[in-house]
Design a protein around this nucleic acid. Sequence first.
DNA 1: TTTTACTTGTGTATATTAGACACAATAATA
DNA 2: TATTATTGTGTCTAATATACACAAGTAAAA
Lengths: 241, 241
Amino acid sequence: MTPSRKKPNINCSPVDTSHFFGFAVSVDCVIFGFDENVLKVLLIKSDLPTFQDKWSLLGDLVELDEDLDSASYRVLKDRTGLENVYLEQVHTFSSVGRHPAGRVVSTAYFSLVNARHHQLRQLANELHWHPVADIQEMAFDHMEILNTCLAALQKKIQEEPIIFNLLENKFSLRELQYLYEAILGVKLDRRNFRKKLFTTGLLVDVDEMEENVPHRPGKLYTFNHGRYSQVKKKTFVGIDF
Amino acid sequence: MTPSRKKPNINCSPVDTSHFFGFAVSVDCVIFGFDENVLKVLLIKSDLPTFQDKWSLLGDLVELDEDLDSASYRVLKDRTGLENVYLEQVHTFSSVGRHPAGRVVSTAYFSLVNARHHQLRQLANELHWHPVADIQEMAFDHMEILNTCLAALQKKIQEEPIIFNLLENKFSLRELQYLYEAILGVKLDRRNFRKKLFTTGLLVDVDEMEENVPHRPGKLYTFNHGRYSQVKKKTFVGIDF
DNA sequence: TTTTACTTGTGTATATTAGACACAATAATA
DNA sequence: TATTATTGTGTCTAATATACACAAGTAAAA
């Protein structure tokens, strides 16, 4: 039996829906990196007349035969040359007037890369790392997207140890602590921080020391991926407002 | 200076992008309710040939002059008659073959309503509340959407007291506890549960008792909205894997 | 009116976790 | 060899989470 609604619904009734197929879909990637003890984001200059010389996120239109995850991986690989990077869908932005080219809804992803180890592609010479804290305005609704993704990152690193994606393979506890502090915008107690991180069992002592630091060198650690996969399943139950 | 990339990017260079505008965008609402101590979700029968008689979520195509939040509010209001309901964007689903009508990406929302107080619209006689735990298969990728939204709900109620949207204005602590247990799929200790909820300061004793219960009636409480708005700002900092 | 069934309302003791806090040792540099 | 910057380490206290039992209230049935 067909429901007698005036406006049939795409999920239940076959109807003419052709006039709805006028959207473009894009992805915008908030690519975070950590360098000089500062959280940075990779931006590119916009050449659109509307946003002359404003900075914008790296994004692209999604092809008609491509899904969102693939599109954001493609953007990331094309721009940074990196593969296998951490990438997470955050939110879809859809204000009617958000893009001058027409009706474009955009799905935001954040990505975590090692800012030092990757060479920006030569051909992308308008591509730059910007300290997140310094950014005041951007093209499109990208300031809102950046803020949303930063909040998502802050929340996520307190729930899962994705933060290691921002560091080199080997890192000192100081680097790790400074990174937490940069993202969360807080100061942490060094002794308590170390205690807490060691109890997670996620740090592997690689029996090496920092080199070329102008002070007593610290031990280097690496992230215990295997341990994390095991522990990941434990479901937390609590009510914490 | 224009970047010399082969494939200009919609965020930086003006180019012909017309062939990208072939998407439709939809919203799908996972409308949760709580009745008979069971978490339920509002579903409708699909009449699409591909999904004959399968159940699907309530959703609709987004108009070209409408944003996603508005579209999901519209769906919710049209189907349940309710306004001012809790609604939260969760994730956008975009598999290339997910919809038989063409390239439709769909943004999922979850919504919390009081299943008892609202009358389903007469004209929607294929609309039914289903126990979430009983659902095995659905039309489209709606099973995946439901699972994703359930996980989002489970996580969210442990962070913010949105759960009160599922109850009547006045409720007993037993009802509240059963609701938590139904959503999280766990058993909670009654004394510790009460202690924890009282310390939040979010419960207001309305000095009334349950009626028509076949046992000793419990006190009724209401949710302290004002208190929540105040407390909401306190930012939590910690590292909890 | 008594009994039964079911649920309310309450507190304490223990274990775990979070947070505050100081000093000696190490390497590099001047 | 003195200076600078950072490492590495432990304890005490406070707060929070968890486990756990019994008397009393109401309705319904005997």
